[in-house]
């Protein structure tokens, strides 16, 4: 299990990195934390001829809230930095709560959020969390950039909307409006394993306690992270009672399309969605109080 040979470039600024990618195209892959790419290379499932290593691009290791309260996460920002940031924990608790379920500290000490999103494993927690938080992704290329909503980014298992020359340079997570509560729950076989089912819930209550906005995103629930939109819509206007959650869960179970794995049959995954959706919603509702 040794990686195939490759040419290694370790540029120190973004422009150089993007130029290298433009030059080598599909032959090249960006290397961020390497916690998904390197295992794939060790198995020789991935054999990029060129690695553009971003670890020396200091500018990409950024984490800050902007004036609008949007969290901006640079491509080289490691999980470790996010999960230890008190301000992130206060303003975007969903992110930190879900991060605790991602692998183990040894992986999170090197792994990056952007790298995980580009890997686009539908069982991974972070893509679903990005959908729940309505994140936007800034995709850069040597001659321009575009911003894409998270929901348009994930196209299928391990497939994204990134063009050959593009880099996911920054993740933008908008602030949660007051009155919002969030919750993340998953069932994995062991701590740190990919979820057999995971649910991210975001609920906002209006002044009189009724739900005014809801988002529900699930991982391990289909070929991409899945938004349960009908389930979420059914909650708007309700008082967020157990019955409302049960009704939403029934809708969510019908909306998702789990693919099954060695660990869980699709039927069991649906069953888990039915169990976890109400629990996650209850958690979010309680926190939205």
């Amino acid at each position: 299990m040794k990686p195939a040979p490759f040419a290694w470039h370790a540029p120190e600024d973004l422009a150089a990195a993007l130029a290298l990618k433009a030059q080598h195209g599909g032959e090249a892959q960006f290397l961020a934390g390497g916690q998904s790419l390197v295992p794939a290379m060790n198995f020789r499932v991935a054999q990029p001829a060129v690695l553009v290593d971003l670890n020396r691009v200091a500018a990409l290791d950024s984490l800050a809230f902007d004036a609008e309260g949007t969290l901006r996460v640079g491509a080289m920002c490691r999980y470790r930095r996010i999960e230890r940031d008190a301000e992130v924990a206060r303003r975007l608790p969903l992110l930190v709560e879900a991060l605790a379920e991602v692998a183990h500290p040894q992986i999170r000490n090197r792994g990056t959020l952007a790298g995980n999103l580009c890997h686009a494993d539908p069982a991974s927690e972070m893509p679903a969390v990005m959908l729940a938080l309505e994140a936007r992704f800034r995709l850069c290329r040597h001659d321009g950039e575009r911003v894409l909503p998270a929901r348009d980014f994930f196209l299928g298992p391990l497939a994204t909307a990134l063009a050959e020359e593009e880099m996911l340079a920054e993740i933008q997570i908008p602030a949660l409006p007051p009155g919002t509560g969030t919750g993340f729950l998953e069932v994995a076989r062991r701590r740190g394993d990919y979820a057999m089912m995971g649910v991210a819930a975001v609920l906002r209550r209006g002044p009189e306690g009724r739900c005014v906005a809801a988002r529900l995103a699930l991982c391990s629930a289909g070929p991409t992270p899945m938004l349960a939109e009908r389930a979420a819509a059914s909650l708007v206007g309700t008082r967020l009672t157990a019955e409302d959650f049960a009704a939403a869960a029934a809708l969510a179970v019908a909306e998702i399309d789990p693919m099954g794995s060695v660990q869980a049959s699709p039927a069991y995954q649906r069953h888990l969605a039915g169990v976890l959706v109400p629990r996650a919603l209850a958690l979010a509702a309680e926190r939205a109080a």
Binding site: R189, M196, Q263, A264, A267, Y268
Partner: peptide, 8 residues
């Protein structure tokens, strides 16, 4: 007997 099979 993992949970998936047990559920079945």
């Amino acid at each position: 007997l993992g949970p998936s099979r047990l559920w079945e």
